[in-house]
Design a protein around this nucleic acid. Sequence first.
DNA 1: CCATACTGTAACTCTATTTATTACAGTACA
DNA 2: TGTACTGTAATAAATAGAGTTACAGTATGG
Lengths: 134, 134
Amino acid sequence: MDNVQFATATHILTLLAVTEGVVPSAYLAGSININPAMVRKALSTLRTHGLVETKEGKGGGAILAKPADKILLSDVYHAVNSTPLLGKANRPNPDCLVGKQINDHLIELYTQADNALINKLSTITLADFVKKFK
Amino acid sequence: MDNVQFATATHILTLLAVTEGVVPSAYLAGSININPAMVRKALSTLRTHGLVETKEGKGGGAILAKPADKILLSDVYHAVNSTPLLGKANRPNPDCLVGKQINDHLIELYTQADNALINKLSTITLADFVKKFK
DNA sequence: CCATACTGTAACTCTATTTATTACAGTACA
DNA sequence: TGTACTGTAATAAATAGAGTTACAGTATGG
């Protein structure tokens, strides 16, 4: 992953946490300074992971699916990210003793490293994050 | 970051750890299955971080700058990576209360998450990693 | 002192990924 | 029924990363 989706998702959730009622994508897009269609793509991901609910039609928009203190930042991470951050590998030479084994060992390592990061994110709730805004 | 540099660097260091003497970039490139010029770019980075030494001219190549049990995987990470993995952000609207503050809060969060990952990597030496190869 | 075998690095191209944009059908409300 | 939304597909633009080529510079050995 080398994308802005975690930032976008966190921004959306923060706005939803501090705003009453249902919020349209155009409003969220204005704060994040991106296109409303991008916001709706992000909301689609967050919805499938149970973090927001959306409502179609006039007066529609998004709202948190549960209280901000029940949403962990690791939930946000999992919503936008399915592979370890340190996840890229080469296609090494299978005729080399090291080359033929290294990807298995790297995957194991990447998983350990990713879990350390996820564990840290799981100690912070959206509510904790939102508290920083004054 | 979304690149293969950590994998390349770790592969190079593993090969150097299991090989006697100075190893030319063409040999390393053969195991990793990449271009020798890419290997030399990677070696250049590792050299400036004190992890390898290189020798020019005929019979030249690379060698570990210190024993494998003195090289931490976090050293490798630092060599190839200067910004947090979760590091990307938008350019939010400065006229919005959330938008104008969020990047500062995200940077703080990214740093914490990155440190958790680095701490994990700092518990593993190159020697530990190399032991997995049979 | 010259042929050889390397490194170091710049310039460039190619490719993959991510982001942005546009468009429009579908839906809900008043 | 008009209006204000969502959902999503298609596509374009931008960016970053990887790969390639080229060649000057350097060390070694005969």
